[in-house]
Design a protein around this nucleic acid. Structure first.
Lengths: 227, 227
DNA sequence: CTCAGTTTGTTCTCACGTTCACAAACTCCT
DNA sequence: AGGAGTTTGTGAACGTGAGAACAAACTGAG
């Protein structure tokens, strides 16, 4: 069997979506282990730390390769590097945030981005009243600067934190200037061409799911208030 | 066939998790339809608006009951009410937010909560420097007030927006005072007893998933910088 | 009343994801 | 060196979810 050229550089195996979604969780737990000075961990250790079934965890890791040692476990730092490389966190990802309201503020200041290889390079807002505000050490700029910024900094990931009404037109412009990944916090379904990835985070949907289960927990607290 | 007592009030059918997660999306689209004055919609209409396969949508709705009319479609307002009732949004859910940093601020001000039946009744923070700050019309209070607030307002849902290090101990205390649903924004896996629901929203994980796919899009931009 | 057209509710099939269970492979102790 | 004890990696069974396809049920026209 002749190996495909570039096999080692970019392993052609395609990793299931469900697994991809868990890799960052493993990565975080491994970082914690590393900071605590743990040199080695078993799949059972890691499973407990992440709340995942250990067999599932092993299978997830097996998609990346055989980085463990039977009878021993995984070298924490080695495995951490391998996962980071697989996700692409060994490189730096410039990110722009559009919509600097309450949420945009919080996102710009969120330290979890920077510490994981994401670098917020620009904050954009359509409202001139917000321009030249300083947020998280960056100056808020006009949305019209988008094209120049993207070209200069080679940005491919954008975060939308605008009101719902503006989200689609913002997304259209992001796509037009060449962004191919969008994280959408606006409560709207975005239509984008094939080849562009959109992930949605909806704060109120999560609460609604909780409410659903909450409602089913209580035996049935009666329709009207019984005094 | 004798109907089970209380059958109409609380349909015993258990709804798949995947369906539950989509109900809020349908709800939002139906609200948009209603505001536009659309009286009736087909599963195809709703599917397009939500980006869901129409067969899947019909199956989802069929778990709630037969609220459509063949040859016609669904009455927008009627279906909207039925979904809202199923999720439990016809009642008011008091919510507390713990950790009033950047994210807590944004959450407290997020209008999407109130408009969906969630009422933020208290903002708590462990840091005395933040106490008596006014955020979103509420006074930030000490975490020690937790027990009293929960008892007075009958709160069952809590939002954790603290740093990761504090999250577990906050969760423990929330559980101790009787909360049974937690929305966790801290980047930690929370351990809670059975009967308590935890949902996690991790801003950086979503970005990492995007980065993974982004990395695989570009053909291979070379390891070291050429020039 | 009948028939053509539309749209729901549901059945069936397939793909995906999870979990169990175990052989293979390693370490350590004697 | 050999054997007991661990732990990985994976094959196989199981459960859940997605999508195609279709019968049932409605509308409206003639």
């Amino acid at each position: 069997m002749l190996p495909t050229e570039g096999d080692e550089v970019r392993p052609g195996r395609d990793i299931p979506e469900a697994t991809v979604a868990r890799l960052p969780i493993y990565l975080r737990a491994l970082t914690t282990f590393s900071e605590k000075g743990t040199g080695t961990c078993s799949s059972e250790n890691l499973a407990q730390a992440t709340g995942v079934n250990s067999a599932k965890l092993r299978k997830d890791l097996s998609y990346l390769g055989s980085y463990g040692t039977r009878g021993v476990g995984y070298d924490v730092d080695y495995l951490r590097y391998q996962i980071a490389r697989e996700i692409g966190l060994t490189q730096d990802w410039p990110v722009i945030i559009v919509g600097i309201g309450n949420l945009g503020h919080a996102l710009a200041n969120y330290s979890g981005f920077r510490s994981r290889g994401f670098r917020v390079v620009a904050l954009l807002d359509a409202d001139p009243a917000r321009h030249d505000d300083h947020v998280a050490g960056l100056r808020v700029r006009s949305f019209d600067d988008l094209e120049r910024i993207v070209a200069e900094q080679d940005v491919s990931i954008g975060v939308i934190a605008t009101p719902a009404a503006a989200a689609q037109s913002v997304a259209d412009r992001l796509v037009a200037v060449g962004l191919t990944s969008i994280l959408n916090f606006a409560p709207t379904v975005l239509a984008v061409p094939a080849g562009v990835d959109v992930r949605k985070v909806d704060l109120s949907i999560e609460l609604q799911i909780l409410a659903f289960h909450e409602q089913r927990k209580t035996p049935l607290p009666a329709e009207g208030e019984p005094a």
